[in-house]
Design a protein around this nucleic acid. Structure first.
Length: 105
DNA sequence: AACCTGACTTCGG
DNA sequence: TCCGAAGCCAGGT
């Protein structure tokens, strides 16, 4: 039973619905590791293409893409815009509007 | 084995 | 407003 922290991160990211974004810190908190936002980034950076995890729906706390230009930024932005997410001035995503609010059941 | 570095976030000075 | 440190942890040097 693979219940390591990375599997948890991946599982949580997989539950972010299209057209919504979550922050690294948010994913970390949901995984029970409130101070492990960096680990989420590390985990996503080490994903294999066949893992089929919607990594592009994770942005930083400022509502911006953390990947540098030329190193994934354009790809992530295109994927998000394709889901209807609008980027405002300064490459900013309005988290009040597009932020994911996980349903507690 | 020690030390550094990340697709991070928050808090203090 | 800007800068550094802490907290977490796997990999690379």
């Amino acid at each position: 039973l693979e219940t390591n922290i990375f599997q948890k991160f991946y599982h949580i990211v997989c539950t972010i619905p299209p057209g919504r974004v979550a922050t690294y810190g948010q994913v970390a908190i949901l995984a029970g590791k409130p101070h492990s936002a960096r680990m989420v980034g590390w985990a996503l950076a080490n994903l294999s293409p066949e893992d089929d995890v919607p990594w592009h729906r994770v942005v930083n706390a400022m509502g911006k893409i953390s990947l540098p230009r030329g190193q994934g930024y354009e790809v992530q932005r295109a994927l998000l815009e394709a889901e209807g997410i609008h980027f405002g001035p300064h490459d900013h995503i309005d988290l009040e509007r597009y932020g994911w609010e996980p349903q507690v059941t």
